[in-house]
Design a protein around this nucleic acid. Structure first.
Lengths: 146, 146
DNA sequence: CCTGAAATGTAGTCGCAGCTACACTTTCTG
DNA sequence: CAGAAAGTGTAGCTGCGACTACATTTCAGG
């Protein structure tokens, strides 16, 4: 966000196969927000409420970490919660969760389609999904409907 | 690494479609190490030396950040460097770079094969590659040789 | 061979995701 | 309905990646 343009040019006269890294770094925090939104939506749908402890368990972190991250989501307008009552999603949060869920499915389906075992597909999709651009997502969709 | 087992069980009596997140989080730091190793190898191969400033430019970060991260790589036995001389890779570092490079190619090829435009494929692969397990990688390879 | 620009290194700050430890509600149960 | 167990929240610490600002070293031209 705060990192300005800075062309990122390759070495001047050298024919380096410049690959643009760049994003990836700041992407991490939004990846976590996505995971939380998705999980909270899941919990709300399946259990009717999303408690910090459940979130923590499912993500494999301490409950304190879960609570702090939920606080960040609240700050960012994605979630709401009141002390000792569960966590809920704002409209923005729900929208995010829906997008993430759809993307997740698509990524898993694509992986399966190219022969990745179910177990690995589910597992890897968790990490991969956060880095799939809209263009790539569209290509996945087209491929699956070939 | 320091996070112990902690079974990560789903809710006891609830039929939640438990998806294992878990790793992902600590994975981030090794993803960065991978990027650096790969880039340093690239620079060494194409320009003959890897200077902090070049690394920083290519990654889109400040030179201070690059230097600090290189320090971490040194701590982890992946790189070496002496003040004002460039950065080099240890054997472990080279091995890592080679693995990463190969994996990157495979991911890009797979993406292209399912119809992702070249530009997007290169770009997304950068983020995706760090989350592709060996099993998935093997599946990609098999698919490409269909 | 000397000097100034460019590169390199160092210090100190911030935000965030983790953790443990402790304090405080809620809720369950005897 | 009181006490214990479970859940929730707060405080304080760490590591890491990112930054800016400042200090130092190299090295190329004059």
């Amino acid at each position: 966000m705060s990192r300005p343009p800075e062309p990122i040019l390759g070495l001047p006269t050298e024919p380096t196969q410049a690959r643009r890294f760049g994003k990836t770094r700041t992407a991490q925090s939004s990846a976590i927000a996505e995971d939380y939104a998705e999980l909270i939506a899941d919990l709300l749908a399946s259990v009717g409420e999303a408690r910090p402890t459940d979130i923590a368990r499912r993500l494999g972190v301490s409950h304190a970490t879960a609570i702090k991250t939920v606080a960040r989501l609240k700050r960012e307008g994605l979630a709401t919660s009141r002390p000792y009552r569960g966590v809920f999603l704002t409209e923005a949060g729900e929208a995010l969760a829906a997008r993430v869920k759809a993307r997740h499915r698509l990524v898993v389906d694509l992986l399966r389609a190219v022969g990745v075992p179910a177990e690995a597909a589910e597992q890897d999709a968790e990490g991969i999904e956060h880095h799939v651009s809209d263009v790539t997502l569209a290509a996945f969709e087209a491929y699956l409907q070939r």
